[in-house]
Write a protein that binds this DNA or RNA. Structure first.
Lengths: 136, 136
DNA sequence: TGATGGTTTTATACTTCCATTAATCCAGGA
DNA sequence: TCCTGGATTAATGGAAGTATAAAACCATCA
């Protein structure tokens, strides 16, 4: 494959690549810290927050950098990172909202089951367990 | 690892898993169609839009279903899908906005270089090429 | 009931991603 | 200059994700 130039590549591919960059817990942690702080964050701090090895973190940071999600700047011997674009924080917010909405929906279902009239020969607890298993 | 229950799992892991589900062009295509139409969309149509094999598409749909992103319903012999939650569409919107913002920023940089005063011994075109290489 | 069209599941080879280790780079201080 | 601490890059073995093909499912219709 001759590596189609980025501008002619269909948007859904570029989007998929973007999400691929977000598809790792350590990278999410990094972005969340950057989004929360709003300012530059040192690699040392990210290292402490994520708890992973420096080489590992560097590789994740490289992924985020290549995607244009973050920007690095070096002052003396220390390097620090920041979000290139506030929309990244928004992306994380919407993702969280979606997950919370899902939880709320599930809670609602559980409530609905609780309010069912009791059936002969089946107790509510086992019914709940059944739905929980079914959701997996 | 004893497979921590979903509710006790840290949010950044769940988020990463969510983005993992979005990290494939075919799945993005599917979600975009569902988001655009707003209503139920038949598998046949998705099959036509994405152009992939039915078995392949089914696997992608299974990924989206397990993540709670889409919901399926069967009427007769045909199955159709819809977004479980409108926030998914919002997620795609923000992603697109971010990518467009990135493009705009790059355009801006190019403009800035164009407006630089000419330097002796260097022509603007090569400068542009240099910045483009540096960005990779 | 058997046959058919549409969808999903299973199995397997293949590709990509990730963690780990070692090596390299880069700036500052002795 | 050499050394040291902080960060990145390179190399590699193993895990996870994906495409392909084959089998199973499920509802409809003859």
């Amino acid at each position: 494959m001759p590596a189609r130039s980025r501008s002619t590549e269909p948007l859904y591919r570029i989007k998929a690549d973007l999400f691929k960059c977000l598809a790792h817990p350590a990278r999410i942690q990094v972005l969340e810290v950057l989004a929360a702080d709003g300012t530059d964050v040192s690699v040392a701090r990210l290292l402490h927050v994520t708890g992973c090895m420096s080489s590992q973190l560097s590789q994740h940071l490289a992924v985020l950098r290549r995607a244009g999600l973050v920007t690095s700047s070096r002052s003396g011997n220390a390097v620090s990172y920041r979000l290139t674009e506030p929309l990244v924080a928004e992306l994380l917010n919407v993702a969280r909202a979606f997950l919370l909405a899902g939880l709320a929906r599930d809670e609602g279902q559980i409530e609905a089951v609780r309010e069912l009239p009791p059936l002969p020969g089946a107790n509510p607890a086992s019914l709940l367990d059944a739905t929980r298993r079914a959701r997996t």
